[in-house]
């Protein structure tokens, strides 16, 4: 990292730390959402951006993580710090099953992506029939006091959730920066570029792809736990929905797949764009059904046409920092 990049990163960090003291409650909720997508996009990016394995079913890890920690709290009053481990364990287990099936039997590319969708869909249908978890009617976590911070149960005012998400995003960024420079990062790049060649060089592609799945699913499970305790209600129809998986990948795709700052920038741009369109439409008084989605889609289309590698690589070149 060059000097300018370090300075910019420091400035961004300071800005984010100070934000709750200047922003109103609405802005804070938007910022929390941005960080949530930045973190989850970073997690997805480990699999696709680093190791080249396209997952279109990351909602499965969010959902399983959310339901695991949520159910422990709902039924037994066990807080998320313990639930976190169950969430991670279950998500990693599912990731390893998908990975084993795919990588052992040579399922790759589009077919791998289809497999990840299939798993997420099956899980959605399965959870619809799990009455213990509320079934299609959903599971609702008790919302106690909103004004006091109860860290043990992760209950508190919006500012607590904001800082939690900020800490997670910063940790994810640091982890990914380290991973990219590690031996694993090298192997992943080789596998992403040309898996056959990587294999011919003696790289154990199966093992390294499984590692990428493990890290990615574990990270995503944590966003699931956050989701459960932030929104307090879980519906299989929503949380496992393929739309959720697409939401997760849009940030890194728009921001720059495989880059460190792409997922963060992408999450910010998309969330602000979505909110901006809503507000602009309200200001103009346009009430045509679906126009928001059309505008959103058009902007995405333009972004991909003019910056096929993402916004970050284009921007990084402009402001003179490394990618």
């Amino acid at each position: 990292m060059n000097r300018r990049a370090a300075a910019l990163l420091l400035a961004l960090g300071a800005l984010l730390v100070a934000l709750p003291h200047v922003a109103g409650s609405y802005a804070l909720s938007v910022a929390t959402l941005i960080l949530y997508f930045a973190y989850t996009g970073q997690a997805w990016n480990v699999m696709m951006g680093f190791a080249g394995q396209l997952s279109l079913g990351h909602s499965i890890y969010v959902g399983v993580g959310a339901y695991a920690a949520g159910a422990l709290f709902f039924h037994y009053g066990i807080g998320p710090w313990a639930g976190l481990w169950l969430a991670i364990a279950l998500s990693v287990l599912i990731g390893l099953v998908i990975g084993f099936l795919a990588f052992r039997f040579g399922i790759s590319g589009v077919y791998f992506a289809l497999l990840t969708i299939a798993f997420a869909e099956f899980t959605r249908i399965g959870f619809d029939h799990l009455d213990w978890l509320g079934g299609p009617g959903g599971m609702f976590l008790k919302v106690a006091q909103r004004d006091q911070i109860d860290l043990a149960n992760f209950r508190g005012p919006p500012i607590m959730y904001y800082y939690a998400m900020l800490a997670l995003s910063a940790a994810a960024l640091a982890l990914c920066a380290w991973l990219l420079r590690s031996r694993a990062g090298y192997y992943w790049r080789a596998i992403r570029e040309d898996e056959e060649a990587a294999q011919a060089l003696g790289i154990n592609t199966f093992r390294w792809k499984m590692l990428a799945v493990t890290i990615s699913s574990a990270m995503t499970a944590i966003s699931g736990v956050f989701f459960a305790f932030y929104y307090n209600n879980l519906f299989p129809e929503q949380i496992f929905n393929i739309g959720r998986s697409i939401e997760i990948i849009l940030g890194p795709v728009i921001g720059g797949v495989g880059t460190l700052f792409g997922p963060i920038l992408g999450a910010a741009v998309l969330t602000l764009l979505s909110d901006g369109i809503t507000e602009a439409l309200a200001a103009f008084g346009w009430e045509i059904p679906g126009i928001k989605q059309v505008l959103y889609g058009l902007v995405l289309l333009a972004a991909i046409m003019f910056m096929p590698h993402g916004i970050w690589p284009a921007l990084a070149r402009r402001i003179g920092v490394d990618r």
């Binding site: 790049r189 080789a190 570029e193 040309d194 056959e196 060649a197 011919a200």
Partner: peptide, 10 residues
């Protein structure tokens, strides 16, 4: 291997 399998963006 056949076809010069180098990693193009490295």
């Amino acid at each position: 291997a056949e076809g010069r399998q180098v990693f193009p963006s490295l």
